[in-house]
Design a binder for these strands. Sequence first.
DNA 1: TATGAATGAGCCTTCATTCAT
DNA 2: CATGAATGAAGGCTCATTCAT
Lengths: 192, 192, 192, 192
Amino acid sequence: MAHVPTEVRRQQFIEAAIEVIAREGADGATTRKIAEAAGAPLATLHYCFQTKENLLWAIFEHLHQIVQADLEAAVPDARPAADIAADLLNGTMRRAASEPAANRAQVEIWLWAERNDPAMAVKQYDTYLQAWMGFLRAATPPLPEERLETVVRVIFGLIDGLNMQLITHGDEEMILRETATATAMLTAYLGD
Amino acid sequence: MAHVPTEVRRQQFIEAAIEVIAREGADGATTRKIAEAAGAPLATLHYCFQTKENLLWAIFEHLHQIVQADLEAAVPDARPAADIAADLLNGTMRRAASEPAANRAQVEIWLWAERNDPAMAVKQYDTYLQAWMGFLRAATPPLPEERLETVVRVIFGLIDGLNMQLITHGDEEMILRETATATAMLTAYLGD
Amino acid sequence: MAHVPTEVRRQQFIEAAIEVIAREGADGATTRKIAEAAGAPLATLHYCFQTKENLLWAIFEHLHQIVQADLEAAVPDARPAADIAADLLNGTMRRAASEPAANRAQVEIWLWAERNDPAMAVKQYDTYLQAWMGFLRAATPPLPEERLETVVRVIFGLIDGLNMQLITHGDEEMILRETATATAMLTAYLGD
Amino acid sequence: MAHVPTEVRRQQFIEAAIEVIAREGADGATTRKIAEAAGAPLATLHYCFQTKENLLWAIFEHLHQIVQADLEAAVPDARPAADIAADLLNGTMRRAASEPAANRAQVEIWLWAERNDPAMAVKQYDTYLQAWMGFLRAATPPLPEERLETVVRVIFGLIDGLNMQLITHGDEEMILRETATATAMLTAYLGD
DNA sequence: TATGAATGAGCCTTCATTCAT
DNA sequence: CATGAATGAAGGCTCATTCAT
């Protein structure tokens, strides 16, 4: 079979795994199903990741990096906090709505991670938290530092909650409508 | 063994299963582990529920009924929408924070149900939706009918999101603080 | 399938396993082969022993008990040490020669045990040692206490060595001839 | 990588394999573990030996040659049979005690060989047998020809048995003490 | 020649479920 | 009714070996 660098193979497996996990959950996603979805023999999957656990953490990391990359592309600038928050919320939800499999897998993996290594889950959560707090800190007029964390946490809550609904209904249009409502709420709260 | 009515047995299994599911997820909760947690022979579990799927749906139903009972106890009355919403949100989150296992199992079962019979999940979701819309409809001054659904959906989103954070951090105090922030947001949005 | 108490099933598996191990070694004796030799489904083997390791230790124990039972049946009495030693050596080798599978499995299991839990192997070895020392202690005229252990150890060495040859040649007649030579040697050494 | 002549490579693998086999048995010694112990890529092992079986036979041969070389260095001379036998026994056990890994691997490989090609095992056994019989034939006064074989076989038994104890206890001092006892036994038997 | 990449076969184990008493 | 015993199906993983470069 075509000789492919292991790193590339790994990406193929990760992609395939995300689809399977979205469909069957983290536990239901057997290595055999994932290998089949990737069009590769089972043994190749284990050649690349050794264990299923490794693969799942790699996916965890992968999904993390996608978000991370997006955030790094954004440039924090001096606007009202409400606008910044609205942008972040809308951007995130639009992406989620456009990639339902990744979105669903994200939640499944999250729960799996939380079950298998809670500390790791918290650590990653905090990475996001710090990043978003950084964005809001650039707001003009500035938000009082002591409110920053709670505000971000509630925005995260909003995102997670909207995600759960997206998972349940899979209705892109509806979710965007609710995102708008959530945005209005945020604006009402943060802004004048 | 002391004769125990089947219905009681079932409740014991359900209770035990909730704990195991909170710890191991819906797929990771094997019938053996559940039976052991219930202090009953494995065969008895199948004698009561026939299949694992039946048991899981029974739990789904059970958790549903708890919330349902709570709602039915409440009396919709003529107060500002913001107050009603705040009460519902706070009550729900307080209960969630006080029963972490049930809360966690709820999410796991939800995802499981969504995977195995999406229509059923949607149907139950809509039951909640209608109930909460009913509460808000009693508000004075009334909320325009066409905003009702979206508002409730966003509140649900808030709840789900806060729940996810409760699962991740398990920090009761923090979650109540964020619930307060979310409440403030709701109030700001629904008007003073 | 016929309902059989687990303890009986276990014995059947042990018996079957001994044959397979004699043929294929402890590592080469797969649970599938053993189950097949026992005429039982693979899952039943694991129902009875959980793990292959458990099964192997059970065999270890089983073979130990056979010898142990034999020894307990024997009655130490006041004869010359040379006679006692000769009897023990001959009895052991005769049994070994008459049950080649058990004999071979014994060696394989021994090496396996030694690899997986050396302390356990040593402990069992010492049980034998003490038992045989007890027999020789009854000799008349008595052997000096300080020679007892070494003599028994060398007899054990003789047995192990003859066993290895039995394994290699599988020639019962020859081994009995050599056992006679070994006996003569023992007699020459322990006294006239 | 520095170019290394294939013959040297092979020796490195053999050496590494002996260590791994001593630790894990012949079946437990996977080609991966051996390659790792040799500090070489897995594929290189198969490049040198094609199959694991080839490697094991090469080890079998290697261990054989070490003993063979030792024997050839010795010069049979006209001494009492008891002295010659004592020298052979002591020399062999001293070497065994000083190289526990090789000694242990020897036994493992022997059983493996015996399982995979009994005829080959017997053939090698007979090589040793003839060599040692040759030594004893030089004794003065001569041992009757018809006793030669059995005597050597019993000495071999003694060696194998002491080896097994060396494997179990790994106690060099004790084994040399028992070797002395065995020697005394031989001497008593072969006569002064 | 040397070696990362790839893999079919098979291993131990576990699962939900059913059977037999 | 209740439950030890039993099991087909499947799961994660490893192994010796081969391929492709």
